[in-house]
């Protein structure tokens, strides 16, 4: 049964501490004069689906990169699970329970779907290299147990038919789904989704929206969603933050943001054709 599958497979996903899951406090990030993020603050709590919207180049991916430690903001503070992570290495932040997907797919192309997902389990595989080399008992057992977890994710994301395929061979829409699976395999406490529906057709977008809804319901983890498809954002988000040129313009409930003059102007202010169509069809 779908309603229990994921929660049973990933008992260590989610967080039961108190206080906000993640707190971003006035962060600033610039690249040689370009202010990518310019004074952004927000909080995300457990169970919350927090969306960040904004025109192309607004700084959404840069915020993700600050959160996951790829970039170190020049100013501001970030706390994850109550701890400052501004000086924490990316792999450490990941193993604390921050998982993400990428705007441009970052799967391991020479690995199978299974191995990509098993790699997501990396921090949960608690055996050493000697055990790995001898492979009796411990390593064998831990691998098999985690394979169970990965199978549950494969079933949840309906990836059964491609589990042994090499990722490079798969169509784009499936790759996006595998990436979501790999992030789920990390048993996340916070899940960052960077344009999960980008480049997808209507049906694929609906599937993706359904998966995100199910993850929210079954795991109750906090999520930050960056997405240009406003229908997805309006349907799924609890809170929306709109930014432009790295600056926050508005924060609130999806309906409020949809009607906010500044947000509409920010989108219209961009002569970019793609953004305009997004604007017309979605807002």
């Amino acid at each position: 049964m779908r309603t229990t599958l994921l929660g049973e497979a990933l008992p260590d996903a989610g967080w039961n501490g108190s206080g906000p899951l993640v707190e971003v406090d006035d962060i600033h990030l610039s690249f040689e004069g370009v202010k990518a993020v310019d004074g952004v603050s927000f909080q995300v709590s457990n169970h919350e689906l927090f969306a960040i919207i904004g025109p192309n180049g607004a700084g959404k991916t840069s915020i993700f990169n600050c959160l996951s430690g790829v970039y170190r903001p020049q100013g501001g503070a970030i706390r994850f699970l109550g701890n400052s992570i501004i000086n924490t290495k990316p792999w450490k932040i990941a193993s604390m329970g921050m998982a993400r997907t990428f705007q441009n797919i970052e799967l391991f192309p020479n690995m199978t779907v299974l191995d990509n997902l098993m790699l997501g389990r990396h921090s949960s595989l608690s055996y050493g290299f000697v055990s790995a080399m001898v492979r009796v008992g411990k390593a064998e057992r831990i691998e098999a147990e985690n394979r169970e977890v990965v199978e549950a994710i494969i079933q949840f994301l309906e990836l059964e038919l491609v589990r042994k395929s090499y990722v490079a061979m798969l169509p784009y829409g499936i790759q996006k789904r595998v990436e979501l699976g790999r992030a789920l395999a990390m048993s996340p406490k916070l899940l960052l989704l960077d344009e999960p529906a980008a480049g997808m057709n209507t049906e694929e977008t609906e599937d993706m929206a359904r998966f995100i809804t199910d993850i929210k319901r079954e795991l109750g983890i906090g999520m930050i969603l960056v997405e240009h498809d406003m229908r997805v954002v309006m349907d799924l988000a609890d809170t929306v933050l709109a930014i432009d040129f790295g600056k926050p313009i508005a924060i609130g409930k999806p309906r409020e943001i949809q009607e906010n003059e500044d947000v509409i102007n920010a989108y219209l202010g961009k002569p970019h054709a793609v953004v305009e169509t997004h604007m017309e069809s979605n807002l």
Binding site: V70, K89, N110, M111, H122, A132, R135, M186
Partner: peptide, 24 residues
């Protein structure tokens, strides 16, 4: 094993590997 997957991940996509919790 886990270690072999980590080696290949670092080789193919170092940054992504690190963001999956692999200490390069």
């Amino acid at each position: 094993s886990k270690d072999g997957r980590a080696f290949a991940a670092i080789r193919d996509r170092g940054v992504a590997a690190e963001l999956m919790g692999v200490n390069p």
